[in-house]
Simulated assay, not measured.
Amino acid sequence: MLKVMSLLKRAEGLSHDAYAKWAVEEHVAFARKLPGLRRYTVNIVNGDDGPYDSVHELYFDDEDARAAAFGSEHGRAAAADASAHTSSRVHLLTTEHAQL
């Protein structure tokens, strides 16, 4: 299983509360349409003075499934929506190793 962790910083002029509402209520609609997405979690950072405002976890079967999802019409729409609401995004492709 491939896990993509995306660290997002809200766009300048967007309050932390407005950003959080967008991330958990609006942007998730795009994730629901991504083909091959197995699981999606949004983590909102407490406080508003850190380097990132949210961490998104997206799970796919493998790299091919991830590439197909983000290369799809829905993937491009999700990226455009994220670009409109963030000032920076970092994507980490990981393999999760649960310990507990």
Rank of each mutant, 00 (worst) to 15 (best):
R66Y: 13
T95A: 14
L37Q: 06
E63G: 03
N46R: 12
E12M: 00
M1F: 00
H16T: 11
L7V: 07
A80E: 14
L14S: 00
G47Y: 00
K9Q: 05
A84M: 05
A82C: 13
K9A: 09
A80M: 09
D61A: 12
H85D: 00
V45P: 02
A68L: 12
R89E: 12
E12D: 00
H56Y: 04
K21V: 15
W22L: 00
E26P: 06
E73Y: 03
K21T: 15
I44P: 01
P51V: 10
Y52G: 05
V42L: 03
D17M: 05
E12P: 00
H56F: 07
R39W: 07
E96I: 03
A84E: 03
P51R: 11
D81T: 04
E73F: 06
F70G: 11
R39N: 11
H91P: 00
L92R: 04
L37H: 03
V42G: 04
G50H: 04
G47W: 01
L100P: 11
L100K: 10
A78M: 14
F30W: 07
G47N: 05
E57L: 13
F30A: 06
Y59H: 14
A80T: 11
H27E: 06
Q99F: 10
Q99K: 01
A77C: 07
L93N: 08
G13T: 05
R38I: 15
A20R: 12
I44W: 01
R66Q: 13
L37K: 05
N46A: 15
A82N: 06
H97C: 09
G71T: 05
I44N: 02
Y52R: 07
V28T: 15
A29S: 11
G50F: 01
V24H: 01
E12L: 00
K3E: 12
A77D: 08
M5N: 10
L92H: 09
R10P: 04
G47D: 01
L58K: 03
M1C: 03
R76K: 15
F60V: 11
E57P: 08
Y40T: 08
L14M: 14
S83Q: 12
H97I: 14
D64T: 15
R38P: 13
D81E: 03
V55W: 01
G75S: 13
Y40W: 13
V28Y: 03
R39G: 08
K21S: 15
L100F: 12
A31G: 10
V4Q: 06
Y19K: 08
A77L: 11
D17T: 10
A18D: 14
R32V: 09
A65P: 13
A68M: 12
S88E: 05
H56L: 14
L2A: 06
D49A: 09
H16L: 09
E25N: 13
Y40G: 13
H97T: 12
R89F: 08
F60Y: 14
S72K: 03
F30C: 11
Y19G: 03
A23H: 01
E63R: 12
R10K: 07
D53C: 02
R39C: 06
E73W: 00
A79S: 06
H91Q: 09
Y19Q: 05
D81N: 10
F70N: 06
Y52V: 14
H27T: 02
H91Y: 07
A79P: 00
